Simulated assay, not measured.
Amino acid sequence: MRGFQPMNTLRYFELGSLKSVVLLLARILLVFLFIKFGIPKLLGFSGTVGYMASLNVPFPSLATAVAVIMEVFVAGLIVLGFYTRPLALALALFTLATAIIGHPYWNMTGDQVMPNTMNFYKNMSIMGGFLLLMVTGPGAISLDKR
């Protein structure tokens, strides 16, 4: 009976030529949510400004513009793999800010606490994904590699 050999097991996860495809898929999935909810912010800009104002966000027009830029344009650049590492860091910081501003569960009571707690920690997980992307880079299927 052979003993456990972790190094041999890890070779199965190197993925070879599929690694770039997996990194492309990961980039798309990581920003999908931003693009899906960023486009309506862009198309309904004034309504989004009103929503930001209702959250007491300082400078709601500027905050909306930043949200649209990050969620639509920067996320789109991540999909393309353009300036991936610095933009992944920027989206990680943006995600942290939106978690703190948009889901302050520590200031809430009643039925608001649980969904905001979940969304806050989901943002932390997404932030982790962006930090991993910053470290790993976009892979070969990207504008950065051309």
Score class of each variant (00 low, 15 high):
residue 2 R to E: 14
residue 4 F to W: 12
residue 4 F to L: 13
residue 5 Q to R: 12
residue 6 P to I: 03
residue 6 P to C: 03
residue 9 T to Q: 12
residue 11 R to I: 06
residue 12 Y to F: 14
residue 13 F to M: 09
residue 15 L to Q: 12
residue 15 L to Y: 15
residue 15 L to P: 02
residue 16 G to Y: 02
residue 17 S to E: 11
residue 17 S to M: 05
residue 19 K to P: 10
residue 19 K to G: 14
residue 20 S to N: 03
residue 20 S to D: 05
residue 21 V to Q: 12
residue 22 V to A: 15
residue 22 V to C: 12
residue 24 L to A: 05
residue 25 L to Q: 01
residue 27 R to K: 10
residue 28 I to R: 06
residue 29 L to C: 10
residue 32 F to M: 02
residue 33 L to R: 03
residue 34 F to H: 06
residue 35 I to T: 03
residue 35 I to W: 00
residue 35 I to V: 08
residue 37 F to E: 00
residue 38 G to V: 13
residue 40 P to W: 02
residue 40 P to Y: 00
residue 41 K to H: 04
residue 42 L to R: 01
residue 44 G to S: 08
residue 44 G to Q: 10
residue 45 F to G: 01
residue 45 F to V: 00
residue 47 G to W: 14
residue 47 G to Y: 12
residue 47 G to S: 02
residue 48 T to V: 05
residue 52 M to N: 08
residue 53 A to I: 08
residue 53 A to N: 09
residue 53 A to S: 11
residue 54 S to H: 06
residue 55 L to Y: 14
residue 56 N to Q: 15
residue 57 V to D: 10
residue 57 V to C: 07
residue 58 P to A: 14
residue 58 P to M: 04
residue 58 P to D: 11
residue 59 F to H: 12
residue 60 P to F: 05
residue 60 P to Y: 08
residue 62 L to H: 01
residue 63 A to G: 06
residue 63 A to F: 05
residue 65 A to M: 01
residue 67 A to V: 03
residue 67 A to Y: 01
residue 67 A to R: 01
residue 68 V to Y: 02
residue 69 I to T: 13
residue 71 E to D: 02
residue 72 V to Q: 04
residue 74 V to R: 02
residue 74 V to Q: 07
residue 74 V to T: 06
residue 76 G to Q: 01
residue 76 G to T: 00
residue 77 L to Q: 04
residue 78 I to A: 01
residue 79 V to P: 09
residue 79 V to H: 04
residue 79 V to N: 09
residue 79 V to M: 11
residue 80 L to E: 00
residue 82 F to N: 04
residue 84 T to G: 08
residue 84 T to K: 08
residue 86 P to H: 10
residue 86 P to F: 10
residue 87 L to Y: 02
residue 89 L to F: 11
residue 89 L to R: 09
residue 90 A to I: 00
residue 90 A to M: 10
residue 91 L to M: 09
residue 92 A to N: 00
residue 93 L to S: 03
residue 95 T to Q: 07
residue 95 T to N: 06
residue 95 T to A: 07
residue 96 L to Q: 11
residue 97 A to V: 11
residue 98 T to Y: 07
residue 100 I to C: 04
residue 101 I to A: 12
residue 102 G to Q: 04
residue 103 H to K: 05
residue 106 W to Q: 05
residue 110 G to N: 11
residue 114 M to V: 14
residue 114 M to E: 12
residue 115 P to T: 11
residue 115 P to M: 04
residue 116 N to Y: 10
residue 116 N to H: 15
residue 116 N to F: 09
residue 116 N to W: 07
residue 116 N to Q: 13
residue 116 N to D: 14
residue 117 T to G: 05
residue 117 T to N: 06
residue 117 T to Y: 11
residue 120 F to A: 10
residue 120 F to G: 06
residue 121 Y to S: 05
residue 122 K to I: 05
residue 123 N to H: 06
residue 124 M to V: 13
residue 125 S to L: 11
residue 125 S to D: 07
residue 126 I to Y: 07
residue 132 L to M: 15
residue 133 L to W: 04
residue 136 T to N: 15
residue 136 T to S: 14
residue 136 T to R: 13
residue 138 P to D: 07
residue 139 G to M: 12
residue 139 G to Y: 12
residue 140 A to W: 03
residue 141 I to A: 10
residue 144 D to A: 07
residue 145 K to N: 13
residue 145 K to W: 13
residue 146 R to M: 10
residue 146 R to F: 12
residue 146 R to N: 11
